[in-house]
């Protein structure tokens, strides 16, 4: 039978199916190669998965919809470099599921907000932004001072492990992490010790300024304070990361 254009036009189901095939070609051609091209993820030291406390903070970040106003991707432009710091690397979000890149900046980019401001500042700012930044339009999040629920943090890590994040459960996985990240980080990635690690980090860091309580503020500030701090850029020369593009 001779193919007729008409048979597609009068058959809505077929039209939709073929349209999707055509459209997906563009995406496939652009995205799929990134999974096997060597240079996609830069060779860089220091990037590790989130600790249990940071992971809970990240979940709260998403729960509160921070990503609606804040991106976490500094683009390689002069103005962004001057304002936010070194441009973001693919390597830095390799353990992010889902990534928080975004392009909608109602608030500033947060990709390198870590260690820029003090914990106290973050606590004051998150509770009542205008107390520290009069011109801010950010809403306050005073309820973050409520106790943090962390009984399920192990399950959360297991879910991420399923997507490929190297959290460890078996001795073998743990040993692999020791080789890859070193003893200290490998310990923090151990799902079996997750709750203990979480409490310990909150105690040591005292992110919310109140050691007596373990709050959601602890988790969120711990997360914010590590954003963009894993890579020590002074170890790499100016042109190093361009070699991967």
């Amino acid at each position: 039978m001779k193919f007729k254009h008409e048979s597609i036009e009068i058959n809505a189901g077929l039209l939709i199916a073929l349209t999707m095939v055509v459209i997906s070609i563009g995406g496939l051609v652009e995205i799929v190669p990134l999974y096997y091209i060597n240079d996609t993820i830069e060779q860089v030291d220091g990037v590790r998965p989130y600790t249990p406390l940071e992971l809970r903070g990240r979940d709260i970040y998403q729960r509160e919809g921070c990503y609606l106003c804040h991106s976490q991707m500094i683009r390689p432009f002069r103005d962004e470099m001057l304002r936010y710091g070194h441009y973001s690397l693919a390597a830095e979000s390799q353990y992010d599921h889902p990534f928080q890149w975004g392009s909608k900046r109602t608030g500033p980019d947060l990709a390198r907000v870590g260690e820029k401001y003090s914990n106290e500042w973050h606590v004051a700012h998150l509770s009542d932004p205008r107390a520290v930044v009069p011109e801010s339009i950010m809403p306050g999040y005073p309820w973050l001072m409520q106790p943090l629920e962390y009984a399920d943090v192990g399950d959360r890590m297991r879910a991420l492990k399923f997507t490929g994040v190297p959290y460890s459960e078996t001795q073998q996985e743990y040993d692999a992490n020791v080789t890859k990240f070193g003893q200290g980080v490998a310990d923090s990635l151990n799902i079996l010790r997750a709750e203990k690690n979480l409490v310990q980090q909150a105690q040591t860091g005292n992110y919310d300024g109140d050691r007596a309580r373990l709050t959601e503020m602890d988790a969120l500030v711990a997360y914010l304070q590590m954003l963009g701090t894993l890579v020590d850029f002074s170890k790499y020369d100016e042109g190093y990361f361009a070699e991967f593009r």
Partner: peptide
């Protein structure tokens, strides 16, 4: 870079280094 000239195929990161 560090006093030595480097050349890369076109990419935005090299453009940025040059621009800076």
């Amino acid at each position: 870079v560090n006093g030595e000239e480097r050349s890369r195929h076109w990419n935005t990161r090299s453009l940025l280094v040059k621009d800076m």
